[in-house]
């Protein structure tokens, strides 16, 4: 089977700083692939490469076996790539429903785009789709409120609803569960498990190991822009290189065995290790946020 998305030897450097280093990632059609790694590992940068915010310095990105490197940012969504953002990108002067409607932009015809009032019967199909997405993500009660000032968890769900109405064949979710409380998290997990079309390929950046394990059939671990492990979720999370990336190397070396249970991959408990590494990590992180 051909991969839906294939990052082939992708390298990205900001000035002299190599943020992504000849990275290979495959997302198979209909798979749920997780992307994990400590802060500054380059996860969001990978998303920005796929969605066209950055162009790779080397290597290529293939979607359905076709290189998409030349496709500009505002036309990638037409290829069926939908995404959410780690640091929310809400339009604060738009209501929840209008924010979601923005995701439909490429599906409506030119005339309809410019000459049909959004609340008129001529836009009924668009409204119905938006309302359905809002309902799916549990947003119906907030539909007509301005997005600005709504709770973080609600804004996260707006992002996902907005990505869904782009009708993606490849969905990129950037830390969908971050900042959610445990019940919101479980709710989101069950929606993602049951409501996404089977044929949709999903790539998820997430720190929550339990979330990743229950959702993803395949996990790729990154550190400093390089792939350090790949495979089934449990195997990757307990991989020594992954544990080292998150928790640092223990000089006592007693717990470096594979028998040690996988640690919670929570960014808050990640210690800074060597000077050289902690210098690189914020640099890469800054690059990703600049988007």
């Amino acid at each position: 089977m051909k991969p839906k998305l294939f990052l082939h030897g992708v390298t990205l450097a900001f000035g002299g700083l190599t943020v992504i280093d000849s990275l290979d990632i495959q997302v198979m059609p209909g798979s749920r692939t997780g992307l994990i790694g400590p802060n500054g590992a380059g996860k969001t940068t990978v998303f920005n490469l796929i969605s066209g915010v950055y162009r790779p310095n080397a290597g290529e990105i293939l979607l359905d076996d076709e290189a998409i490197d030349a496709v500009p940012l505002d036309r990638r969504v037409r290829l069926g790539i939908g995404r959410t953002f780690q640091n929310l990108r809400m339009m604060k002067h738009l209501t929840v429903l209008e924010n979601i409607m923005l995701g439909q932009h490429t599906h409506v015809g030119l005339w309809q785009r410019m000459l049909v009032p959004l609340n008129s019967p001529f836009n009924r199909a668009g409204l119905t789709e938006t309302r359905a997405a809002a309902q799916l993500m549990g947003l119906s009660a907030h539909a007509d409120l301005l997005a600005d000032g709504l709770p973080y968890g609600v804004q996260k769900r707006i992002e996902i609803a907005r990505a869904l109405v782009t009708r993606p064949r490849l969905l990129l979710l950037d830390e969908p569960a971050a900042g959610l409380n445990s019940s919101e998290r479980d709710e989101l997990l069950s929606i993602l498990l049951t409501q996404l079309p089977k044929e949709m390929s999903v790539l998820i950046v997430e720190h929550d190991v339990a979330f990743v394990s229950s959702l993803c059939d395949h996990v790729v671990a990154l550190n400093f822009g390089r792939k350090i492990a790949e495979g089934r979720a449990e195997a990757v999370c307990s991989h020594p290189a992954v544990i080292e990336a998150y928790l640092g190397k223990d000089d006592d070396a007693a717990d470096a065995d594979a028998g040690v249970p996988a640690p919670a991959l929570d960014e808050t408990i990640v210690p800074q290790e060597s000077d050289q590494k902690s210098e690189r990590a914020p640099g890469a992180e800054r690059g990703t946020h600049a988007a």
């Binding site: 940012l73 505002d74 969504v77 339009m91 002067h93 738009l94 409607m101 932009h105 782009t166």
Partner: peptide
Amino acid sequence: LCLTAIRNDAQGAAVFGV
């Protein structure tokens, strides 16, 4: 809708094909 989206976050709007 696009005008407001561009005013709020132009690159964010471009991601959705605007």
